[in-house]
Design a binder for these strands. Structure first.
Lengths: 342, 342
DNA sequence: TTGAAAGCGCTACCAA
DNA sequence: TTGGTAGCGCTTTCAA
């Protein structure tokens, strides 16, 4: 049916080896032969079978990506950045969504590895590194994005401690006095953003009572509801907060919607800052101040790292790479309380 | 390095064939042998090499997906629905974004086909079927989603004529008198939504002057800017419209933002309805009325279609399948002019 | 500069 | 119920 290398070879009266070398730009093929091969390839509409190539070279030109929620703009951007940069080298991205379910994530990792990827990128929702210790990655390089597990594999993400600090400082700068945090999962991002936030509060002599730190049970798939629930709880306190740092923008969006329902004015009664900088943050009911995590760049940097990894010699000494991007503060209406300063 | 089937076989003192059959649940393997094999597989941490399997079976367990913009929630949802349903059969989705560039799309299709996918799903940004006639798909089934090319391949999408009609009827029902349309590309979706809209206007005796139909040059990647530009143009007309049907929600979002800038009140001065029902439509500055295109379902229905296609015999008579979902009207604040009725 | 042969890991056919 | 053998389509020595 489909035309294969053999067909090109016999049509040209040369061997398969010659065709193969010509196609792979091997130096020891004459220009003339190469041209003849290329012409025939076009004529017959030949397309190399990457599966076969993959089997013999051990390279698949495929990179896996597993994220908690494929519909979350933050992870979409990572996927897009990754795919865009990788495409230049004819790589494709195989995706899967773990739905924030650690078990499902583990299972998907196991399944996707069977495809002999050249690298696997995971924004993990595991709370411990256990799952990764049990999994056999073979020689597939693993790259964590966004969420880190120290020392286990490569990492590309943003400085979460700095993000927490930045958000905290910003809320203080707009004169918030009672500052709460809707925190994320017990993983690197959740813990570091919390720590950056808390340390900054302490440093500035601002007390954060324990009831001001609310744990969200889901931050992506069910993030909006969780944000709304957290706000209800915070506003029912004797002394409700006047500023909230949300672990991510999905939660923050839920908070904003719920605030409107309860008649809590943003930013007058309550300043809100999130984390992520999703592509619709600027158009929501109250444009959301946030800490930009540079998601697109996480994707492209990861892609570059992968290209480096596959380019270096198989047996070259491998050390774990760690790429940490600095977050950026993006101020919008949800914390714009400049009127109070006056 | 990695353990392969041969290792299992020799460890057990049986042949590779036996192991292979046991793993694939072949009927002619004794229960006992199967159990022994499974135990050894677990013990050694064996994982079948799908590349090798793919080469010998001709099946890759991979489905390709090419969309105009991976960061657009509409296409994300399709990807998610597709991936979620396919995963149950251990299929994975390979993605690529064409960036609304027909040339790039054609090139990506060509590249991705080299991976011998079991099916290729495309939300095409081509304006003609030319590109598809030139491409050799081999025996890879092609499924168009969202945008159709009649008779060329399978299709899963929504009834765009009905969508246009629905939007038009809704704008009429909220007493709009001067109704404009920011139209999309010259493809099936753009043309049918326009036609559904126009026919409905005509049927209701409402004239739509040609300057009320504005063509957006980009609807996804640069959709928001295009929406804003279109609004500027429409509002500068002698007789600006009091209702706009936007080809999609990205454009509509741009319109809403621009309206705010220009002091045009929505929905009081101008009612806006979009198309798509993106997951953040309900939280934007003015919650957006829209025609739900059931994107997630497009994904899952496509997945089911693919599973059917791969299940049916290779040489079975193949007829082109066409799955058309009915859109649904979702009313939100951007067209809520009920106050005028009173 | 070109090519013959071996092999990548697995499945399928047919025989035992 | 089990296994030998021959591929799947390509790349990679090594020899010519």
């Amino acid at each position: 049916m489909t035309v294969k290398m053999k067909d090109i070879a016999s049509a040209l009266g040369v061997s398969m080896v010659t065709v193969s070398k010509a196609l792979n730009n091997h130096p020891d093929i004459s220009k003339k032969t190469r041209e003849r091969v290329n012409a025939k390839v076009k004529e017959l509409g030949y397309r190399p079978n990457l599966t076969a190539r993959s089997l013999s070279t051990g390279r698949s030109s495929l990179v896996g990506l597993i994220v908690p929620d494929l519909a979350n703009p933050f992870f979409c951007e990572i996927a897009k950045g990754l795919s865009k940069t990788l495409r230049e080298q004819s790589y494709f991205v195989v995706v899967s969504s773990s739905e924030e379910d650690p078990m499902l994530e583990e299972q998907e990792i196991d399944n996707i590895l069977a495809h002999r990827l050249d690298a696997l990128v995971v924004a993990s929702c595991q709370l411990s590194a256990e799952a990764f210790r049990n999994t056999r990655f073979g020689d597939t390089p693993l790259i964590f994005v966004d969420r880190a597990f120290e020392g286990l594999a490569h990492f590309v993400g943003c400085d979460d401690y700095a993000a927490g600090k930045m958000a905290a400082e910003h809320l203080l700068s707009v004169r918030c006095k009672r500052i709460a945090h809707i925190r994320g999962p017990q993983n690197s991002t959740g813990i570091r953003r919390l720590k950056g936030f808390m340390d900054t509060m302490t440093k500035n002599g601002v007390d954060v009572p324990s009831e001001y730190v609310v744990q969200a049970l889901s931050v992506d798939v069910d993030g909006r509801n969780q944000g709304a629930e957290a706000l209800k709880r915070l506003m029912s306190l004797q002394r409700p907060p006047d500023g909230i740092f949300c672990y991510n923008d999905i939660l923050a969006t839920g908070v904003i919607v719920q605030a409107d329902k309860q008649g809590v004015r943003i930013p007058e009664d309550l300043a809100i800052i999130g984390c992520g900088n999703l592509h619709f943050d600027d158009v929501i009911q109250v444009p959301l101040s946030t800490v930009d995590q540079r998601s697109r760049e996480i994707g492209s940097r990861t892609a570059k790292l992968i290209l480096e990894l596959v380019a270096t010699d198989e047996d070259a000494p491998k050390k774990i790479r760690k790429i940490v991007l600095q977050p950026r503060l993006v101020i919008r209406a949800s914390t714009d309380r400049s009127f109070r300063k006056r």
